[in-house]
C-alpha cells in the first residue's frame, strides 16, 4: 500500500516535471510574442474609442471630454434606420442559420459515420474558406438574375446571403457541444422507453442549448459585422450599419463614426463574452 502510494506520488511528480518542460508558456519568448500579438490586436481600438469622446470635430486633436458624438449618432435618423435594418437582418439570418446548423450538427454527430462525412464538413464550412469577395460577386450576379426575372428586390436576398455565410459559425459550436456530450444519457432515455422524439426533446435539446445559444450569437455578430457581401447584395434603401459607415469614409470623418464604432464594438464584446461563459460553463 505504502509502496504503491509512493510510486504514485513519484509518477505524478515525474509527469508534472515533464508537463512543465513541454508547457508552451515556459518556452523562451512566449510572453514577448503574446504581448506583441495582443498589442497588435487591441492597440488600434483604443485611440478610436478614446476620440469618440472628443468634444471637438477632430478625430486626432483632443479638445476635452464629451458625449456629444454619441448624442449626435443617437439622434441621427439615418443611423437609426440602418441600425434597425442591421438588427432585422442579423436576427433573421442568425435564426435561419442556427436552425439549419442544429440539423446539420445532429446529422453529422448522432448518426453512424458515413462515407463522405468529411466532404459534408467541407461543404458546410465552405463560407469560412472561400474569400468573401468571391461569394459576394457570385451572389451579386446570381441574385441580379432572380431580381430581374421576378422584379422582387426585398430584404430577403440580404437575409438569405447572411444566413448562408452564418451557417458554419453557428454549426461549429453546436457540433462541438454535441461531440462533448455524454451519449449514454440519450441511450439511457431510449432504454427507458423514450421515443426518439422524446429523448431529443427532454435530453439532447436541453443539453445542447448552450451550444445553440453560442452558435446563434456568433452568427448574429458575424451577420451584424458583415461589409463585403452586404455591399454587393444590398438593393435600393438597404444600407446596413457597416455599409453606412463605409460610405462615410469618402468625406471628412467626424468622431460620430468613432462613437458608432465604439458602440458596435461594445455590443460585440458583450455578445462574445456571453458566448465564452456559455461554452466554458462545463469545465
Amino acid at each position: 500500500m505504502a509502496d504503491t502510494l509512493s510510486d504514485d506520488v513519484l509518477r505524478r511528480a515525474a509527469e508534472r516535471a515533464q508537463s512543465k518542460r513541454f508547457d508552451v508558456r515556459t518556452m523562451p519568448g512566449f510572453t514577448t510574442i503574446a504581448v506583441i500579438c495582443f498589442i497588435a490586436l487591441y492597440a488600434p481600438l483604443f485611440p478610436m474609442a478614446f476620440y469618440s469622446f472628443n468634444a471637438g470635430d477632430s478625430i486626432a486633436v483632443w479638445q476635452g471630454f464629451s458625449w456629444r458624438w454619441y448624442v449626435s449618432a443617437w439622434s441621427n435618423d439615418l443611423v437609426k434606420d440602418v441600425t434597425v435594418r442591421s438588427l432585422i437582418v442579423a436576427a433573421c439570418a442568425s435564426g435561419i442559420a442556427t436552425v439549419l446548423a442544429v440539423l446539420a450538427a445532429l446529422g453529422t454527430t448522432r448518426t453512424q459515420p458515413f462515407r463522405g462525412q468529411t466532404l459534408i464538413y467541407v461543404l458546410i464550412n465552405q463560407p469560412l474558406m472561400v474569400p468573401e469577395i468571391v461569394t459576394g460577386v457570385a451572389l451579386l450576379v446570381f441574385f441580379a438574375m432572380i431580381k430581374v426575372a421576378t422584379g422582387y428586390t426585398g430584404l430577403i436576398y440580404l437575409i438569405a446571403a447572411h444566413a448562408a455565410f452564418c451557417i458554419p459559425f453557428a454549426y461549429l459550436p453546436i457540433r462541438a457541444r454535441l461531440e462533448g456530450m455524454d451519449k449514454t444519457l440519450e441511450a439511457a432515455a431510449s432504454d427507458l422507453y423514450a421515443t426518439p422524439i422524446q429523448a431529443f426533446r427532454r435530453i439532447t435539446l436541453p443539453l445542447m442549448t448552450p451550444g445553440i445559444v453560442a452558435g446563434a450569437m456568433l452568427a448574429f455578430v458575424i451577420s451584424l459585422d458583415d461589409v463585403v457581401i452586404t455591399e454587393l447584395v444590398k438593393a435600393a434603401g438597404q444600407d446596413t450599419l457597416p455599409t453606412y459607415m463605409l460610405g462615410q469614409l469618402r468625406r471628412a470623418i467626424t468622431p460620430e463614426i468613432n462613437a458608432i464604432s465604439t458602440a458596435l464594438l461594445a455590443i460585440t464584446v458583450v455578445l462574445l463574452t456571453t458566448i465564452f461563459f456559455l461554452t466554458s460553463k462545463k469545465e
Binding site: 441580379a144 430581374v148 454587393l232 438593393a235
Partner: peptide, 16 residues
C-alpha cells in the same frame, strides 16, 4: 464607397 462598386452592381442588373 467607390466608382467600381457602383459600376459592378449596376452592371449586374436587378439593383432597383
Amino acid at each position: 464607397d467607390s466608382n467600381t462598386t457602383a459600376l459592378t452592381k449596376i452592371e449586374a442588373g436587378g439593383h432597383g
